[in-house]
Amino acid sequence: MSAPTDRLRPYRSVLYLPASRERALEKAAGLAADAIIFDLEDAVAVEEKARARELLRRTLAERGYGARARIVRVNGLDTDWGEADLAAFRDADVEAILVPKVSAPEDLDAVARLVPRIPLWAMMETARGILAAAAIAAHPRLAGMVMGTNDLAREIGGRFRPDRLPMQAALGLCLLAARAHGRVIVDGVYNAFRDAEGLRAECEQGRDMGFDGKTLIHPDQIATANAVFAPSAAEIDLARRQIDAFEAARREGQGVAVVDGRIVENLHVEIARQTLARAEAIARMAQ
C-alpha cells in the first residue's frame, strides 16, 4: 500500500529544529512554519543523542503544534542510535519519519520494517541517492523527499554559486522523480540566514523549478519562504479569470477561451484550479 501524500497540504517553509534544545521545542509551537523537522541527526551532538530522543518523545506526546506538519529526522541505521530512534517514534503522532542519506530503496525497506505505520520521507544527499531517485520515489512507503544540498555539495566537490549550477542536475532529477510518483519535495537549505536577498532569490529559483517549499535553518527565514512559495495575488486573480472565461466559453459551445491575449484550454484551467486550492489550503493553515 502506498504512503498517503497530501499534495494540497502546504510545505512552503520546513524548519529544522534541534531536538536537544528544549526552549526551541517550546517556541516552535508559535512559529509560522508549515512544517517542522525535529532533528535527532546532524543538529545533535553525540553525547546528547539519548537525551534529545527522550526529550523529543516526551514533547511530542505532551505538546501540540497546531496545523504544522511534524517530521522526525532520525539517525541512520548504520549508527549507534538509529534503531533506538525508530523504536521511540514508531507509534508517534507525527506526519513522517525522515530517513537520512537514502541511497537506494533498500534503505527505506529497512526502516519500513521497524516503523510499519508512519509515512517515510527521504533525505536526498548522496550521489548514489540522486542516481537512484526514481526508484526511491517509487517506494510504496515514501511520501516526501528533502534535498540535502550541503552534504551533496561536499560529496560531489561542488562550489557554492548563486545560480546553483553545480546542483541543477541533482535538483532536477529528484524533482522529476517526486512528480512522477506524486511525492512532496522540498528544496535544500540556504546557509546565509541573514542574507534576506540571497534567500529570496534561491526560494524563487526553487519555486520556479517546481519545489513545494524550502527547508530552513532559522525562524527569520520563514516569512520569505511562505511568501515565495504561496500563490501571489496576481496568480490567484488570473486563475479565477481563466476559470470564469473558460466556463463562459464552454457554455457557448467553444473549447478554448482567451484571457489577457493568451489561449486558455483545459490544461490551463486545471492549473488554475490547483492554484486556488493551494491558496485555500494556505489560508486554512493561518486559521
Rank of each mutant, 00 (worst) to 15 (best):
S2Y: 01
S2V: 06
P4T: 02
L15Y: 04
P18K: 05
P18Y: 04
E22V: 12
L31S: 11
L40T: 02
D42Y: 07
E47W: 01
K49L: 12
R51M: 13
L55E: 02
R58V: 08
T59C: 07
T59V: 07
E62W: 02
E62T: 08
Y65H: 08
Y65I: 14
A67Y: 08
A69W: 09
A69P: 07
R70S: 14
V72F: 00
V72E: 02
R73C: 10
N75R: 02
N75E: 02
D78P: 02
T79Q: 01
T79C: 06
W81H: 05
A88T: 02
F89R: 08
R90Q: 11
D91N: 04
D93M: 00
A96Q: 10
I97R: 00
L98V: 06
K101E: 09
V102S: 03
S103C: 07
S103V: 07
S103M: 06
A104L: 11
L108K: 05
A110H: 08
R113D: 14
R113L: 10
R117K: 05
I118V: 06
L120Y: 04
W121M: 14
I130C: 08
L131F: 02
A133R: 01
A134P: 01
I136M: 10
G148C: 10
G148F: 04
A153W: 00
R154C: 08
R154S: 10
R154V: 14
G157D: 03
G157E: 06
G158W: 07
R164I: 04
A169S: 09
L175S: 03
L175M: 11
L176K: 01
A177K: 01
R179I: 12
H181C: 13
V184M: 12
G188C: 06
V189W: 05
V189N: 03
N191F: 02
D195A: 07
A196W: 03
A196R: 13
E197N: 05
R207I: 11
M209C: 09
G213E: 07
D220Y: 01
D220L: 15
I222Y: 09
A223M: 07
A225I: 14
A234W: 01
I236H: 00
I236Y: 00
D237S: 12
R240C: 15
Q242I: 14
I243Q: 13
A248W: 04
E252I: 10
E252K: 13
Q254G: 05
G255D: 15
V256T: 14
V256R: 11
V258D: 08
V259P: 07
D260S: 15
G261S: 12
G261Q: 10
I263V: 15
V264W: 03
E265R: 13
R273Y: 05
Q274E: 12
L276P: 11
A277R: 13
A277T: 10
E280C: 09
E280A: 15
A281K: 02
A283G: 11
R284H: 11
Q287K: 07
